[in-house]
Amino acid sequence: MEDTEIVDLYLARNEDAIVRTEEKYGRGLRKIISSVLDDEACKECENDVYLRAWDLIPPNEPRDHFFAFLGKIARNLAIDEWRRTNAQKRKATMIELSEELQECMPAGNSVEGEVLARELKKAINSFLSARSQTERKIFLRRYWYFDTVPEISKRYGYTQGKVKSVLHRMRGELKEVLEKEGYLNDDK
């Protein structure tokens, strides 16, 4: 079923919308969630994603990028749950990923709340749009889709070394961008 038809089901408040969503994108959403949470929490989180999508459509009508819309919900819910989780139960993938992103952030920043979220979003999109398609894909597969390096390597046919190099370089460049924009110093 096309995304636009599924969105129409949501707008018509037809509960078949959730069934169709799960059929088409359940696997992809579970992949994202399972990278963050353990099996026990996964199922619950997945159900929350569908519920949240039901609440958000309408007023949203994500006909063009439906999976991106769902994936964002899934990511955010999973990360929320991950933050609440006892540290000892955290998945190795997220610990590793978190450590990698730490490279983008030196100590001593003081940007707060809503302003941070809005401005960071702009900075990230600006950073990504200035990169090549290959770099963007690798970066997002790692930090949006939570793929592991071997998975990314297999997907694109690159060596793992190349994937790691690209990610390492991009984290360095992201850090420079964030510092230049003033997110990572005490002045902002």
Binding site: G28, H65, F67, K72, I79, L140
Partner: peptide, 19 residues
């Protein structure tokens, strides 16, 4: 975590491109 959330707000066309 803030950075992770921010990356999650990446432009949907970029996300679909990677997908």
């Amino acid at each position: 975590s803030d950075l992770l959330y921010a990356i999650g707000e990446a432009d949907e066309s970029f996300v679909d491109e990677a997908g």
